[in-house]
Structure formats: structure tokens, C-alpha cells
Write a protein that binds this DNA or RNA. Structure first.
Length: 875
DNA sequence: AAAGCTATA
DNA sequence: GCACGTATAGCTTTC
């Protein structure tokens, strides 16, 4: 039986280690997961390396142990277990069970004693023993067949204690470790030892005398008067300490080695726990495919034409696309489910059927969808305008909790307890392995999705109503999805030639700057590499590094600007970066996104992504087209109307976030300022600096503007000081002055943080929620971040609510007025249209009117607008 | 895949 | 004494 190997783990000790080694992670439900995660990592690694035949995780049973009858203060003065860790123990236990590992705890005994007892029994049986703990006391158990692994810093770094290693490290035998503890004590366990005797002295004494008992028998021979005195005075305490430090190897345990055979994990259970805790990396690494086991068989019919009889009044419908870029992706087919029968129609056959297209357009035919925006966009590509959407899974899940990061039907369904859908990755493969499976597989996959929609609708709607978010979902997000789908599919015309010419111009300029930089640096290097640049600037040229990053010198723009006066290379580098960014992201990047067939760019808005309720824009991002610097702003010249004699028309909300703040805080001074339509930054400067309007300098206004931004973002004196390049103290004074001038804002900020603490979430004007589990964290950084988001999210999110509502009203108004003008883009606080010149006069009237009336606040909303022959000219 | 940088509101 | 402004997307380099 020499091949048997038993692995004994100290559960409490390892959980503590994991907890303190890792940052306080949480999953999207606010459950702390760092200890479980670290424990899992250790477990995986150690099992893989050791391949044990037997395993056990021992836990401490309770607070009191037999050692307390010897010494009441044993382990006294210990900090109580942080609640963030306590809450993780149940998961650790569940996980151990899922792995199929035995766990054990025993009244009055510690995990050490269980491990000691079992390691002795295993040793006697001739097994190899491996003990894992974070507690060095366990090293006393080391023998020729027993190795004790003690975690070092981190979670997977381990020191292996064999008798030889102990000899080498301390010059002692494993059992003498107990004597050493007896003499030197152990602060963490509150074992006193002999005061004044530390590790060095203890080791020296034991090398001479062998044990505590022998030492006291030969006390006369000990050199050093002081030491002898200390030893004499503390003889009882030394002997008691030794007994406290001795691990019991004959504890009355009720498990036997034979019960501990390890036969491998139940991966289904393990994966379920990983999912519950959102261990994404572990899930991705695991090749275990649990879906096939979890899903139940379904029935479906593949059709090669659509018969009117299958298109009923209410149906779940899913368009199965090969990839997520639905504007260009191949349509693999559509699935339909009516509560009983599932159908799949391959490819674009459905859209070739007038019966189907008519059904899609019919508002009285009710559709349940996974992603109505995508469905709308794809339908429009097939010249169909869909109506009658009554459910959108993606949006419903997002409104329930915007932190849910998953965007495929399978993972959303699982969030709400429905497991009968496979992931896209498992059907198509991911990365380089992605490919189209056979038709049958696709049909089944798509059918499962349609069935999921049907089954999940009641669950999601109930949740939305319970949270009073049903109208946010049904009257705001759902109609908006259709509008966004239309905007995306309409697209925006981009003049390729303009971009190409700008690109050539940029390339030329870049080459010149590049050469200049090489001359100034005295060598050629990759300017785009912060690492190489850092070496040139701070080592070769010898500039002073003002800031560091995790990996080296920071060469960020704000740092370089401060060094600009030191060396002329800085200015060149900043210019190189600026032009390089324009060329790679905006010239080359945008050119790649122009569709050949229509010369347009079709971005995709992510409607279910941000935690605040804003949209985001991808492939390409049209919400960050340059505007601040003239050189970049010229990119906007390429964005033109799709008809030659039309114009671009842009309208933006003025100071919408500060107006929202005025509304929510009801601060009299701020409300007044907006009611009188004052320049808010000037007004802030007047109040913060106590000057008259005429005496506000441009610097004062700039500082006030930064303070206003800071207030919206959840201010800190440090952040403001960085932004304004002033001291922290000065920044703190500004903030104090601001809050004195706008006391209602201070009250509001305090209250919103309190509210977040009490309810666990904050809300916007339209009752959008954001959960902030970390607001009660004991970690300063996490808590502070949550507090700032508690202040910012209602402001940013309410502004998002307002413009979304405006978009819905605007789309309706364009229809009502029978206009050809099209709403094309949304950039957080602005809307961009293209319009025939004849409609300009009307547009100038209705756009501000509709936007300003979108949601009534207790301050007016203000909209500025402009038009011109390109986006650039709308200024 | 992560880090560093830069573009927007 | 620590670390320290909100929300994003995308490019290049480096591991």
C-alpha cells in the first residue's frame, strides 16, 4: 500500500490565508468571494500536484477547546473573524462537498488535533502524508513520510517542511518545534512562553538541552544571569505553553482513514458553485461541458417554408445569428415557439415569406424576443419594420440588475433559474475554434432560446413589477430598443475620401515628428511603447519621473505636460501621440467600419451594458469622436448627410447633469441659478470665491468648472487637486466653500450615501437601480468607490433617463409631423440628425421643444442646437 | 490577456 | 497613514 497518499488540510487556516492574500472580491450579488476563490485555487493546485488517494479538510469546531481548561486566555485577544470572511465559510464547505472531499470538525478540538491524529494513523498505516496549513505549528507533525506544506505570502506559494528542512532551517527536530513554541510563545494564539525569550534564544537553548524539561533539569548550566532569572520565574508558564502548543495526536475522532478515500469531484456541483460566485476564469478554463447534462431533451420541427397556420397571435421569436455583429452577420435561421410547438426555419427563408413579414409588421401579433434591437435592425435589413414586441429578455434582465454582465440567452436564463439553454460558445465553439455546426444543432439551440423566452417572461415581469420598474422597462427601454435598431440600421454616411486624405496628411506629419524625436533622443525607439519611452526620458535624458505605474514610469499626458519645460522632446511626443491616436483609431479604425454597399457606418448601441443606464457604442464607437482639439475635430467633417442636399443637425442638453443635481438636491441656490439661466460655472465661481460677477477671472471660472465636475463625480479633495494641479488643501477649501454655498447639495450627497447603505442600491428619476454591495465594505477603497458611485449614478443615470425619453418622444414627433429627417446618433447628452433643408425650420422648433419637455424637473432643461453640411459644421 | 494610453460625455 | 473623481471603447505594446 505504499502508493497511498493522504492529503490533510487545515480549513480554517487556509480560508484565513486566502482571505487576507486576495483583495475583497465580490460577485454581482454582493457576496464576498475572495476566500472561496483563493481556497479553490489552492485546492486545485495541490490536488493536481499531489494526486492524493485520501483527503480530508479539518475545521475548528467552536470557540472553546480542551486547551482552554489549561489556559483560559488561550487564543485570547484575537480579532474576531471579519464578517466578510464568515459569510464565505458556508460556500467553502459546500465547495469541499462538491469536490467529494470529506470534511470534519470535533467539539473541543482544533483542526490541528484532527490533522495530528489522522496523520499519526496514516503514518502507522504506511501512507504518505501531506499536511497543508498556514500555521507553522503544524510542522511539528513532520516525519520521514509526513511533509507539512505551509503557505507563504500569496495563495499558491508553499514552503515544504520535512524533518530535513526543519533541521536546516532551525537546527531542530520536528518535535522540538513544540519546545520552541513553549519557550518563545505565540502571540497569535496568545501563548505566553517565557517573556524575553524569542526564536533565537529558544533555538540556542534547545540545541544545548534538547527539550524544555531537560533545560529546567540543567538550569544551573545556563549561561547569562538575566536569562536564568527569566527561565526560573516562568517555569510553570513555559511548561504550560509547551503543552498548549502540542498538537493532540490521539483525539477521539470518529472518522477512520478508510472513510477518507478520494474519488474525484462532482464537477456539476462544483461548476454550479463557481457560477453562483461568478468565478469566470475558472469556468472558462474548465473544459467540462455541463450543459449537455443539465438540459432536458426538447422537441422541435425544422420547416423549409412558413405556413400561415404556425404564426399565431403570441409567439416567442428568436433570430439566430452566427456572430454578435448582427449588421453583417449571417442569419442562420429563426425559431418560433407558441408555448407548445417549436419551429425552426433555416437561413433567410422566413424573410422571403410575405406571410412571415406581414406577421412581423403586425402590431397585434405579440412577440417575445431576446434582443429586440437586434431583431429590429435585422428585420429592417430585410425591408421589414417589426411591431408588436411585448418582451425583451436582455432589457428586462438589465433593468432588474444592470450589473449582470452576461449578454447571451443562456447565461441570463441561468441567472433566473432556467437551465434549458446551451451557451453560444458550447454550440459554436469560441475563438479560433468557432464554426457553424450542423443544421440540426442550430435548430435545437435556437429552439431552446425561444422556449426560454416564453418561460422566462412571467418571472422577469414579476420581478420588474415588484421593484416598480415595469414602466421603466416597458415604456422606456423597450420602445427605445426599436428606435435604436432603426438608427443603427439607417447608419450615418461617412465620406471615405475625406478620411483617406486626412490619413495621408497625418502619416506625413507623423513621419516628420518621429524623425525629430529620434534626433532629440539620440536614437531610434518605439515611441508607442511606454516602456521604451520611459527608458529614453527618465534614464537616458534624465528627466525626473513624477509618477509611477505598476510596471514602471508613467508617461501619461498629465505627467509629460509637467515636464514640457524641461526638454523639447516632450512636446513632440505629446503631438506624436495625439496624431497617432487620430490616425489609428479614427482614420484607420473608421475606414474599416464603412460598409461597402451603402458607404455608411452602422454602429451598435449597447443598451444593456452600463451600470448607470447610459448607452455605449461599439463597432465603431461613435460616442468618442474627437471634438476638443481642432486637429481631431476635423474628423467630423467626414460625417455627412446621406443625401447631398441635406444637412446634419445636432442638439445637446446644456449642463444636464448639474440641472439633475439641482432637481434632486432641491438646493435653493442651485435651483435659482438655473431658473435665472445663469452661466453655472461663473455662478459657482462667484459663490466659491466670494466675488462679483464682473470679478470672476477665467482661472476662477475654470476652477469652478472643475469643482462642478467633481461634485457630479462624487468629489474628493485629491481628485480635484490632481485635476486643477493645486494642493490637496486648496482643493479641500474649494469643496468646503462649494458645499457652504450650496448646502442642499451637501445634504443630498450625505443622504444618498445613507440611502445606499440602508437599501443596498440607489435609483434614478425613472427608478433605474444600481446595487452597491461594497458600500458597507471595511475596505476603504472599495467603500469610497461605492460612495462616489452612490452620488454619481443617480445624476448620470437620471440624465440618461431624460435623453432616452427624449429620443422616444422625438421619434414619435418625427412620425407625427410626417418628416423625412432622421435621428442618427446619440452621444449621452446630444442627438444628431440628418435633415432635408426644407425641414430645418420645423426641426429647429421641435427638437429643442421635445428634448426640453422630455421629463419635467424643478429647473428648466436647456437645449442648444446647430446645423451644417457635416457633423463638424454643427457648431 | 493585461497594461498603458487617449478619445468622448 | 493608506489611496484617492463618474461612465465608456479601442488602439498598441508586452507578457
Amino acid at each position: 500500500m505504499a502508493s497511498e497518499k493522504i492529503l490533510l488540510l487545515d480549513g480554517n487556516s487556509l480560508a484565513y490565508r486566502a482571505f487576507f492574500a486576495l483583495p475583497l472580491l465580490t460577485n454581482e450579488h454582493g457576496i464576498h468571494t475572495n476566500a472561496v476563490y483563493g481556497f479553490t485555487m489552492m485546492l486545485q493546485k495541490i490536488m493536481e500536484e499531489e494526486k492524493p488517494t485520501h483527503m480530508l479538510v479539518a475545521f475548528d469546531a467552536g470557540k472553546t477547546t480542551f486547551r482552554h481548561s489549561t489556559f483560559e486566555e488561550y487564543k485570547g485577544g484575537r480579532q474576531k473573524t471579519p464578517p466578510e470572511l464568515s459569510e464565505q465559510f458556508p460556500y467553502i464547505r459546500k465547495l469541499i462537498d462538491a469536490y467529494g472531499i470529506k470534511r470534519y470538525e470535533l467539539e473541543m478540538y482544533e483542526a490541528d488535533d484532527i490533522i495530528g491524529t489522522l496523520s499519526k494513523q496514516a503514518y502507522e498505516k504506511g501512507q504518505q502524508v501531506v499536511i497543508v496549513s498556514g500555521d507553522k505549528d503544524l510542522t511539528q507533525l513532520s516525519t520521514d513520510k509526513t511533509t507539512v506544506y505551509i503557505t507563504r505570502k500569496g495563495i499558491t506559494d508553499i514552503e515544504k517542511y520535512t524533518p530535513a528542512h526543519i533541521e536546516e532551517k532551525y537546527g531542530l527536530t520536528p518535535l522540538q518545534i513544540i519546545d520552541m513554541k513553549g519557550l518563545m510563545g505565540d502571540a497569535s494564539d496568545n501563548i505566553p512562553g517565557v517573556p524575553g525569550v524569542g526564536e533565537k534564544t529558544a533555538i540556542k537553548l534547545l540545541k544545548e538541552h534538547g527539550s524544555v524539561e531537560n533545560l529546567y533539569q540543567a538550569l544551573d548550566t545556563v549561561s547569562g544571569v538575566k536569562l536564568k532569572e527569566k527561565l526560573t520565574a516562568n517555569e510553570e508558564q513555559a511548561k504550560m505553553s509547551k503543552s498548549l502548543a502540542t498538537i493532540e495526536v490521539n483525539a477521539p475522532i470518529e472518522v477512520a482513514i478508510e472513510d477518507l478515500t478520494y474519488s474525484g469531484p462532482n464537477m456539476e456541483d462544483v461548476v454550479a458553485i463557481w457560477k453562483e460566485l461568478s468565478f469566470k476564469t475558472l469556468l472558462e478554463k474548465t473544459e467540462y461541458v455541463e450543459e449537455d447534462q443539465e438540459t432536458t431533451e426538447i422537441q422541435f420541427t425544422i420547416l423549409d417554408e412558413i405556413d400561415a397556420s404556425i404564426l399565431q397571435d403570441t409567439m416567442a421569436l428568436h433570430l439566430e445569428m452566427y456572430d454578435e455583429q448582427y449588421h453583417t452577420s449571417e442569419l442562420l435561421g429563426i425559431s418560433l415557439f407558441n408555448g407548445e410547438e417549436s419551429y425552426f426555419v433555416p437561413g433567410s427563408i422566413a424573410f422571403e415569406s410575405p406571410v412571415f413579414c406581414t406577421w412581423l409588421e403586425d402590431a397585434t401579433k405579440i412577440k417575445y424576443l431576446a434582443d429586440s434591437k437586434a431583431t429590429q435592425a435585422v428585420s429592417r435589413k430585410h425591408k421589414v419594420s417589426m411591431h408588436g414586441v411585448d418582451f425583451d429578455l436582455l432589457l428586462a434582465a438589465y433593468i432588474v440588475n444592470p450589473s449582470i454582465s452576461s449578454d447571451d440567452v443562456s447565461s441570463i436564463a441561468k441567472e433566473f433559474g432556467y437551465y434549458n439553454v446551451l451557451t453560444n460558445d458550447s454550440v459554436y465553439g469560441k475563438g479560433a475554434k468557432k464554426s457553424t455546426p450542423e443544421l440540426d444543432k442550430i435548430a435545437e439551440h435556437a429552439s431552446r432560446k425561444a422556449q426560454a423566452l416564453w418561460n422566462l417572461k412571467p418571472t422577469l415581469e414579476e420581478k420588474l413589477k415588484e421593484n416598480e420598474q415595469y414602466s421603466l422597462y416597458k415604456e422606456l427601454e423597450l420602445p427605445l430598443a426599436s428606435i435604436l435598431g432603426t438608427m443603427e440600421s439607417d447608419g450615418v454616411k461617412v465620406d471615405k475620401q475625406i478620411l483617406v486624405e486626412m490619413g495621408q496628411d497625418l502619416e506625413g506629419k507623423l513621419q516628420i515628428i518621429e524623425k525629430d524625436i529620434y534626433v532629440l533622443a539620440g536614437e531610434e525607439f518605439n515611441i508607442n511603447s511606454p516602456k521604451q519611452l520611459g527608458v529614453i526620458l527618465f534614464e537616458k535624458i534624465g528627466l525626473t519621473p513624477l509618477k509611477k505605474t505598476k510596471t514602471g514610469y508613467s508617461t501619461a499626458a498629465d505627467v509629460l505636460e509637467k515636464l514640457a519645460s524641461e526638454h523639447e522632446i516632450i512636446e513632440q511626443i505629446l503631438h506624436y501621440r495625439q496624431l497617432g491616436k487620430l490616425n489609428s483609431t479614427y482614420i484607420e479604425g473608421l475606414l474599416k467600419e464603412i460598409h461597402e454597399d451603402d458607404g455608411k457606418i452602422h454602429t451598435r448601441y449597447q443598451q444593456a451594458l452600463t451600470s448607470t443606464g447610459r448607452l455605449s457604442s461599439i463597432n465603431p464607437n461613435l460616442q468618442n469622436i474627437p471634438v476638443r482639439l481642432e486637429e481631431g475635430r476635423k474628423i467630423r467633417k467626414a460625417f455627412v448627410p446621406s443625401n447631398p442636399d441635406w444637412v446634419m443637425f445636432a442638439a445637446d442638453y446644456s449642463q444636464i447633469e448639474l440641472r439633475v443635481l439641482a432637481h434632486m438636491s432641491e438646493d435653493v441656490n442651485l435651483v435659482d441659478a438655473f431658473n435665472q439661466d445663469m452661466d453655472i460655472h461663473t455662478k459657482t465661481a462667484m459663490d466659491v470665491f466670494h466675488v462679483e460677477k464682473e470679478d470672476v477671472t477665467s482661472d476662477m471660472r475654470r476652477a469652478a468648472k472643475a469643482v462642478n465636475f467633481g461634485i457630479v463625480y462624487g468629489i474628493s479633495d485629491y481628485g480635484l487637486s490632481q485635476n486643477l494641479n493645486i494642493t490637496r488643501k486648496e482643493a479641500a477649501t474649494f469643496i468646503k466653500q462649494y458645499l457652504n454655498s450650496f448646502p442642499g447639495v451637501k445634504v443630498y450627497m450625505d443622504e444618498i450615501v445613507q440611502e445606499a447603505k440602508q437599501r443596498g442600491f440607489v435609483t434614478t428619476i425613472l427608478n433605474r437601480r444600481r446595487y452597491l454591495p461594497e458600500i458597507t465594505s471595511s475596505n476603504f477603497n472599495l467603500r469610497s468607490f461605492a460612495e462616489r458611485t452612490a452620488m454619481n449614478t443617480p445624476i448620470q443615470g437620471s440624465a440618461a433617463d431624460i435623453i432616452k425619453k427624449a429620443m422616444i418622444d422625438m421619434a414619435q414627433r418625427l412620425i407625427d409631423e410626417n418628416m423625412q429627417s432622421k435621428m442618427l446618433l446619440q452621444v449621452h447628452d446630444e442627438l444628431i440628425f440628418e435633415a432635408p433643408r426644407e425641414e430645418l425650420a420645423l426641426l429647429e422648433k421641435i427638437v429643442p421643444e421635445v428634448m426640453e419637455a422630455a421629463i419635467k424637473l424643478n429647473v428648466p432643461l436647456k437645449v442648444d442646437y446647430a446645423f451644417g453640411s457635416s457633423w463638424y459644421d454643427t457648431k
